[in-house]
Computed example of a mutant assay.
Amino acid sequence: MSKEEKKQEQAARAAWMYYVAGLTQQEIAKTLGLSRQVAQRLISSAREQGMVSVKIAHPVTHCLKLAAALQEKHGLSLCRVVPSASLDNEAIQQMLAVEGAEVMSQYIAEEQPQVFGVGSGKTLRSIIDALPWTERPQHHCVSMIGAIARDDSGTRYDVPLRMAEKMQGKYFFVPAPLYADSPDDKAMWCQHQVYQRVAARALNAHVAFLGIGDVSIGCPLNAEGFITDEQVHSLEKRGVAGEMLGHFFDHNGERIIGELDQLLTSVPLESHTTRPIIGFAGGEKKYPAIRAALRGGWVSGLVTDEASALKLLAE
């Protein structure tokens, strides 16, 4: 057994003790001969690797009412709200992962072949990590955002591949960097036949699953080196509220067009969309982006948290 396999075995053992036997982290640590910190990391690792599938049969009535009210107010085809009162961002993300996986699973359960357009980012990654393994080789996952990072490596948040693995289906990726080096370079990437075919698949997907991102110093696009501090400040001066697939919009949901659009290779999006696009986001930092995405009609469905839903309905 390899070192990695032994680590997975240990994580699975810790998960059984914690979630099924009801042992505390201290008790697990003592049983396995580890420190409490290592036991805690093993339990977190088991959840992140999709070993643990959580299903709570009884919904929170207040959250159901919030979801119904949001759905009606913004004309959404789907809305889910997870409890979040007084929780920190990490806990909210874990809840979004469980609820997001439940939403995705409903589409994956379809027997008829489906095409899923998939974005990228930490929230989507955690949702797909929470997805159960299933046998749906007839389904396809199509990336909607460039799979090549600034340094020519594969992006760490290439989540469509992970989703395809979970379903045992095919994966189609956008053969381009998120931002090209120049407008001419963008034209070269986007005019390639492979890009054209993948983009057409994504645009005709049965449903798209996308994260709703904030734009600030330290946000994923900035931290990963896709946009500079100077470009972030420039976008902030123009009233940026959020982004989806690198498409920036202001607090009213209106598109902010700038220099980066001449380089962006993502699959096109449009406001007041008629396409089935489900957005996933929650937490205080993401609230302006969520509100703007709804105002601009960038999503037709939403999975968010209780505190965000309350603020959205109060406005």
Rank of each mutant, 00 (worst) to 15 (best):
V52K: 09
E9A: 13
C141G: 13
L66W: 05
G297W: 15
H206W: 13
L124S: 08
E102M: 06
G154R: 09
V52M: 06
R125P: 02
A68M: 03
S45T: 14
P183L: 01
V54R: 15
I127N: 05
V174P: 10
P175G: 09
F173R: 07
A241G: 07
H233L: 10
M1N: 15
D151E: 15
D185T: 01
P177G: 06
M244Q: 05
A15Q: 12
D181H: 08
V207M: 13
R275S: 09
A187P: 03
D158T: 12
M51I: 12
Q40N: 15
A46K: 10
C141L: 03
Q106K: 09
Q196N: 04
Y171W: 06
A68Y: 14
L203Y: 09
H62W: 03
L96D: 04
R125E: 09
K311W: 11
Y19Q: 03
V194N: 11
S105R: 14
A176T: 11
Y287T: 00
L161I: 11
G242E: 08
G117S: 06
I128T: 08
S86T: 07
V82D: 09
F226H: 05
L66V: 04
K30D: 10
L96Q: 11
P220L: 10
D261K: 09
K286A: 13
P276F: 00
P137T: 08
G301M: 14
L70G: 03
A293F: 07
K65R: 06
A200Y: 02
A307E: 12
I28T: 08
I28A: 11
F248P: 02
V232S: 08
T24A: 02
G211H: 01
L34V: 06
H192L: 04
R201F: 04
C79G: 07
P288Y: 14
D129Y: 05
T31C: 04
G246W: 00
N252K: 08
G218M: 12
Q168C: 10
E243S: 14
L221I: 13
D152K: 10
R80A: 14
M144Q: 00
A149S: 12
V240P: 00
V20E: 05
I290M: 01
E306V: 08
